[in-house]
């Protein structure tokens, strides 16, 4: 059995949050390749393999913030989920927003789950580890159609 490397795309405009997530994934048990993009437009380029991301690999999991520069996270979610090829990729919304309408909208656009970033570091690391454990170990992901 070959050890598989899991591709994770993190869409996060806050460098500190991106770095924290990166640190949390570094401790992970699963071999993963975390790619980070800082705004919605670049996220779409990455997913649709455009511009400098023509060589990008199809992610197995997307961690998506909602409030993003250029193209909003909600729009990124809608575009990904309505695409026949990308729609099956699990998208985890990871945001500071606790507005009920954001939660409702995210699920309406078929987000796979909605997680509010915890304030406390220990909780944050724990949550990332839960995400990693659940999505990369517990669940069976769709075959990476590459």
């Amino acid at each position: 059995m070959t050890i598989q490397t899991i591709e994770v795309l993190l869409v996060e405009d806050s460098p500190s949050d991106a770095r924290l997530t990166q640190e949390a994934f570094k401790d992970g048990k699963i071999r993963n390749n975390l790619s980070i993009v800082g705004d919605g437009a670049e996220a779409l380029d990455y997913l649709f393999r455009k511009g400098k991301h023509v060589e990008a690999r199809r992610p197995d999991l997307v961690l998506l913030d909602l409030n993003l520069p250029k193209v909003d996270g909600r729009e990124v979610l809608r575009r990904v989920k309505s695409d026949p090829h990308l729609g099956s990729i699990p998208v985890v919304i990871l945001t500071t927003s606790e507005a009920e309408e954001d939660v409702a909208k995210a699920y309406e656009y078929h987000a796979n789950c909605y997680i509010r970033k915890p304030v406390d570091l220990a909780r944050f690391l724990e949550i990332v580890s839960v995400i990693e454990n659940f999505w990369l170990t517990v669940v069976k992901l769709p075959p990476n159609a590459e």
Partner: peptide
Amino acid sequence: QEPLRTVASFTQL
């Protein structure tokens, strides 16, 4: 809250 979270998180880290 946002910048504070960063300060707290990284000092904790």
